[in-house]
Amino acid sequence: MVPPIAFLILGAVVFLLAMIGFLTRRSLVQALMCLELMTSAVALTFLALGRALGDRSMTGMVFATFCMVISAAEIGMGLALVLLYFRKHGSTSTDDLDLMKG
């Protein structure tokens, strides 16, 4: 049996990589994917911790489940916003600097 610590390390590594990805990717969608990956890494960590601690209340699993739920909602929201943005600006020449300044 694989010890829980391995999953923890895996979770940490994935989280870190996804974070670096989020910080460096130029594509919005890629950024969204990185966020998803980060969430998954956290979910993995929760599961592993739950097992490692032998928590009978299944806190880790519950948390992991909710992580999934939230990330689903999140990707939905994210894509919707991206789409909306694209629609608004699609047909006109975009003033990107305006955007940068907020």
Binding site: F22, L23, T24, V29, Q30, A31, F86, G90, D96, M100
Partner: peptide, 28 residues
């Protein structure tokens, strides 16, 4: 751009120019 809900690549191309730079930097 003109195609409704155009390809992801196109969106990515658009937003590459605009958005992620800001966000990623802020996060950093």
């Amino acid at each position: 751009v003109n195609a409704v809900g155009g390809g992801t690549a196109a969106i990515g191309g658009w937003l590459k120019r605009l958005q992620t730079g800001v966000v990623a930097n802020y996060a950093l």
